[in-house]
Simulated scan of single mutants.
Amino acid sequence: MGRTRYEATEIETRKLLTMHGGFHHRASTLRLYTRRNEGGQGLMSVRATVQDKTTKIQENVRKMAPKGELLSEYLRQQKPDDAEEEEEEPSWRDKPPHGMYHRQIEVADSKKSYQWLEKAGLKDSTEALITAAQEQALSTRSIEAGIYHTRQDPRCRLCKDTPETVQHIIAGCKMQAGTAYMERHNQVAGMVYRNICTEYGLEVPRSEWKTPPKVV
């Protein structure tokens, strides 16, 4: 299978993923094929699959060659150039703006930062939305003004004060400080509370959304 057929198959695969919400059309294709423990979505590419199977077949042939004249002759006539050389792929982390999030968290524990990709068990659509947000692939006003050039004003549609980036929407908009951000904070604190209750044998709230008492 030639490279053109590899690429055509992978393009069709990404189209299907996009149609069903498993991949954002502006997200990084490099990250899509990166292992989950390295911050990617872990999809095995057609090319990598073929290369892996080819390598295993060649290893098996070398192992069995001493037992058969035909395999020995095959190895003797095989040229080094017959095997497709594996090229080093560029990393999504080096791509602006896709790698901006990773570069910002370099001071943190990268392995733990990407642990959710392996253990969270999210829906494909939810995972695709989160990774697209991390890669600056969502159409915020800042992206529309600075990259797509489809608008002139990059300011936030709520506070109308700061450029509307993903980071600003998630944690920097003063209009959401007392509502969405507070609700998110309380949900995280509620999980900490439940874990403490479990650790020390206290009564654990039945519902994850139940507001804990002020003093326990």
Score class of each variant (00 low, 15 high):
103 R>N: 13
207 S>P: 01
131 T>G: 04
86 E>M: 02
25 H>G: 05
58 Q>M: 06
8 A>K: 13
83 A>S: 10
63 K>T: 15
100 M>R: 09
14 R>F: 12
53 K>T: 12
27 A>D: 01
211 T>G: 01
80 P>G: 15
62 R>G: 00
43 L>I: 14
152 Q>R: 13
172 G>Q: 05
190 G>H: 04
122 L>V: 10
12 E>I: 14
197 C>G: 11
50 V>L: 02
48 A>E: 08
153 D>M: 07
24 H>M: 06
83 A>L: 11
104 Q>F: 07
52 D>Q: 08
62 R>K: 10
57 I>A: 09
7 E>T: 15
135 E>G: 02
212 P>E: 08
115 Q>I: 03
146 G>N: 07
37 N>K: 02
32 L>I: 09
83 A>G: 05
156 C>M: 09
160 K>R: 09
33 Y>S: 08
19 M>E: 15
51 Q>D: 13
32 L>W: 02
103 R>A: 12
147 I>V: 13
80 P>S: 14
105 I>D: 08
156 C>N: 03
74 Y>M: 11
124 D>E: 08
132 A>R: 01
164 E>K: 01
66 P>L: 05
83 A>M: 11
194 R>M: 14
134 Q>L: 15
53 K>V: 15
117 L>D: 03
47 R>G: 07
162 T>H: 04
47 R>M: 11
129 L>D: 05
110 S>A: 13
212 P>V: 07
199 E>K: 12
44 M>H: 04
78 Q>D: 07
22 G>W: 00
58 Q>L: 12
199 E>M: 11
46 V>A: 07
19 M>H: 07
25 H>S: 14
69 E>M: 05
17 L>Y: 03
135 E>A: 01
86 E>W: 00
4 T>E: 11
154 P>S: 11
210 K>D: 09
79 K>T: 12
35 R>P: 09
105 I>T: 11
89 E>V: 14
159 C>T: 03
32 L>E: 04
122 L>T: 13
30 L>W: 05
155 R>G: 11
133 A>E: 04
83 A>E: 12
15 K>F: 15
117 L>K: 00
34 T>F: 01
83 A>I: 13
68 G>L: 02
102 H>W: 11
93 R>V: 15
167 Q>W: 05
134 Q>R: 14
72 S>M: 09
120 A>C: 07
72 S>Q: 11
103 R>F: 05
146 G>W: 00
157 R>W: 07
11 I>Y: 04
60 N>H: 06
139 S>V: 12
63 K>M: 10
143 I>S: 02
65 A>H: 01
103 R>C: 10
145 A>W: 01
94 D>F: 00
190 G>L: 03
172 G>A: 10
129 L>G: 03
84 E>I: 06
169 I>V: 15
182 M>I: 14
192 V>K: 00
39 G>V: 02
118 E>W: 00
40 G>D: 08
99 G>L: 06
210 K>L: 08
201 G>M: 04
166 V>I: 15
86 E>P: 03
18 T>D: 01
206 R>N: 12
53 K>M: 10
191 M>E: 14
51 Q>G: 12
194 R>T: 15
150 T>C: 12
71 L>I: 07
106 E>A: 09
177 A>R: 10
173 C>W: 01
8 A>V: 12
2 G>F: 06
56 K>S: 10
215 V>Y: 06
64 M>Q: 13
120 A>W: 01
16 L>M: 14
169 I>S: 03
48 A>P: 00
54 T>A: 13
144 E>G: 02
136 Q>N: 13
151 R>V: 15
200 Y>I: 13
78 Q>A: 13
